[in-house]
C-alpha cells in the first residue's frame, strides 16, 4: 500500500547557464509503515526531495502524491493544514522555537491545530525520549542530543502519518545517533507511521527497511 509517490519530479533553480538541477526526474514510492533511508553526498538533492515530499517546496515538473492526493493541486492554506495534520518534520537544525519551552515546543503542532494535547500521550513520548525534567526548560539551554529528541518528540506528538527526517542524527555523535535512531525506529513501529530519513551514514542506514541512493538529482540504486 503506497503512502508516498513521486512521479518524474524535477526541481531547477535559476535558468540558462546558471540553471542548477537539484532534482532531475525522481520516481519514488514508499509503502505504509516503511522506514526508508535516502543516502547521498551533500548537494545531491536529498534535502530538496524531502522538502518536496513535505510540501515545503513546489516541484518545477512532476507530481508528488501523498495518500493519493496531489500536493501541487492543493491551495496554500490546504497545504499548510495538510502539513500540520499529516506530516511530522525532524530537521537537521532541529528548528525548535526558541521562545517556547520544551513542552510547548512538543505540543506546538497540536496546538496550532486547535487540539488540546493528550497529556498522557505527550508525557509518554517525553518519558520515552528521556526528556523528563526538561519540560519547562528553554531549548537553547539543551544539548544537541536533547534538542534533537525534542524535535523528534514534536514530530511524534501529533501522531502524523508520515515523519520526514532530514539528517536526524547529523549533529549528533555516533553514540547519540544510535540512540536517537533506535528510538525513531521503535516509535514508528509503535505508532504505525512511515519514516523517510535522509542520512549520509551507512551505519545508520542499516536500520532502514530500504535504502535509496541519490546522486546528481537522480535515484541511482533502488
Amino acid at each position: 500500500m503506497k503512502i508516498l509517490e513521486t512521479k518524474n519530479v524535477k526541481k531547477y533553480y535559476g535558468n540558462g547557464d546558471n540553471c542548477v538541477k537539484a532534482l532531475d526526474g525522481v520516481d519514488l514510492s514508499v509503502d505504509k509503515g516503511e522506514l526508508l533511508a535516502i543516502v547521498g553526498t551533500s548537494g545531491s538533492g536529498k534535502s530538496t526531495l524531502l522538502h518536496m515530499l513535505g510540501g515545503l517546496d513546489i516541484p518545477t515538473e512532476g507530481s508528488v502524491m501523498i495518500n493519493g492526493k496531489e500536493l501541487s493541486k492543493m491551495k496554500e492554506e490546504q497545504l499548510t493544514i495538510f502539513r500540520r495534520r499529516q506530516i511530522g518534520f525532524v530537521f537537521q537544525n532541529y528548528n525548535l522555537v526558541p521562545m517556547l519551552n520544551v513542552y510547548e515546543n512538543i505540543v506546538l503542532p497540536l496546538e496550532l491545530d486547535g487540539n488540546k494535547p493528550d497529556r498522557k500521550y505527550v508525557h509518554g513520548i517525553i518519558d520515552l525520549l528521556h526528556l523528563k525534567g526538561t519540560e519547562t526548560r528553554f531549548t537553547n539551554g539543551l544539548s544537541g542530543g536533547q534538542q534533537q529528541r525534542v524535535a523528534i518528540a514534536r514530530a511524534l506528538a501529533s501522531k502524523p502519518a508520515i515523519i520526514l527526517a532530514d539528517e536526524p542524527t547529523g549533529n549528533l555523535d555516533s553514540k547519540t545517533s544510535q540512540e536517537v535512531l533506535g528510538l525513531l525506529k521503535m516509535s514508528i513501529k509503535k505508532f504505525g507511521q512511515t519514516l523517510v530519513m535522509i542520512t549520509h551514514n551507512n551505519e545508520i542506514a542499516q536500520l532502514a527497511d530500504r535504502i535509496i541512493r541519490i546522486e546528481d538529482g537522480r535515484i541511482c540504486e533502488g
Binding site: 515545503l56 496554500e76 492554506e77 499548510t80 493544514i81 502539513r83 500540520r84 495534520r85 518534520f89 528548528n95 522555537v97 526558541p98 521562545m99 506546538l108 503542532p109 496550532l112 491545530d113 514534536r154
Partner: peptide, 15 residues
C-alpha cells in the same frame, strides 16, 4: 525565520 519555522510546522497565514 521564526515565522517561517511556524509556517513549516503548520501555522497558516491567518494564524
Amino acid at each position: 525565520q521564526q515565522y517561517g519555522q511556524l509556517r513549516t510546522l503548520g501555522a497558516t497565514k491567518r494564524q
